[in-house]
Design a protein around this nucleic acid. Structure first.
Lengths: 153, 153
DNA sequence: CGCTTTATTTCGACGATCGAAACATTGGAT
DNA sequence: ATCCAATGTTTCGATCGTCGAAATAAAGCG
């Protein structure tokens, strides 16, 4: 196969890879009974160990109003709790509950060892190539996103 | 760096890569003045060269009602046209217009050469490694998505 | 011909989002 | 000390996108 056509195949494989990732998240959201926005918030809360409502809004790319609504939904599921910040009582600290932490672990936990198992079969040099590809790809896409944003169409 | 921590970095890099892709699509949708569903439909229509309303619904994963609404929005923008199928007059063929084709080309066109330029700097063996990684990753994620779907939480 | 099946649209309702205004609290500035 | 601008969150009203179900239209078949 020519290098050029290999490049074409990689381009398509990237798209399929993304779609597969999307299907995993869709399945997880469905299993938790929440929508994609809520799943995003859950991930942010778990990774951070807790955020104020405003921080969550920024991280999730949501308006203040939508953030309040999302927090309310998560509270309703028992997936998050609000606590007033004693130092600054305007602030509300939002944290994920052990309930959702447990469920997420049950859903996503097994992905890690599976991924590690797959990657372990690569040599160190190959892993470095893959890593370089991912980092350069991210940079490329951020450049392109920036270019597109500056375009009225 | 240990192989193990390299694997960890790759895992994180994958997530960042996906997010970057997402930002490109968000920027493109915004430049075209449409939402993400409409952008998805535009892509499907352009790639296929035209679909019936029903086919579009299946491909996009939308209900019939949502599909009709999306087509209506795209028509309103001048991005799609409906034509009755003469052979089976129940069917409606939806096609992307040159207008949207041109705009999409202007937005996404430059991504291809940039991507090719980046990938060209890899050796053939490296490209094969990357390709293998993407394909195996897709398979892995599909297995995990299936597992998660079979889980009540 | 009717009857069932297939393709699309219409209808009514709901859920998630937004911008703007309201509310609560803080931290100066005078 | 107190007022006032700034900050953080919630409430409100409106809009948009989606769905399920019913309606419409057309095809195919017995």
């Amino acid at each position: 196969m020519s290098k050029q056509s290999l490049i074409g195949e990689i381009t398509e494989a990237v798209v399929r890879f993304q779609n597969a990732t999307d299907r995993v998240d869709a399945a997880a959201a469905s299993a938790l009974g929440v929508n994609r926005t809520d799943l995003l918030c859950i991930g942010l809360l778990l990774r951070s160990g807790g955020l104020t409502a405003g921080q969550l809004a920024v991280e999730a790319g949501l308006s203040p109003a939508a953030t309040t609504a999302a927090i309310e939904r998560l509270e309703g599921f028992g997936y998050a709790v609000r606590t007033k910040d004693d130092a600054d009582r305007r602030r509300v600290l939002v944290t994920a509950t052990p309930l959702v932490a447990g469920r997420v672990e049950k859903l996503y936990g097994p992905v890690r060892p599976s991924g590690t198992a797959v990657l372990s079969r690569y040599t160190r040099a190959e892993l470095e190539t893959i890593h370089r590809f991912l980092v350069q790809g991210e940079e490329l896409q951020d450049r392109e996103a920036k270019r597109i944003r500056g375009q009225s169409v």
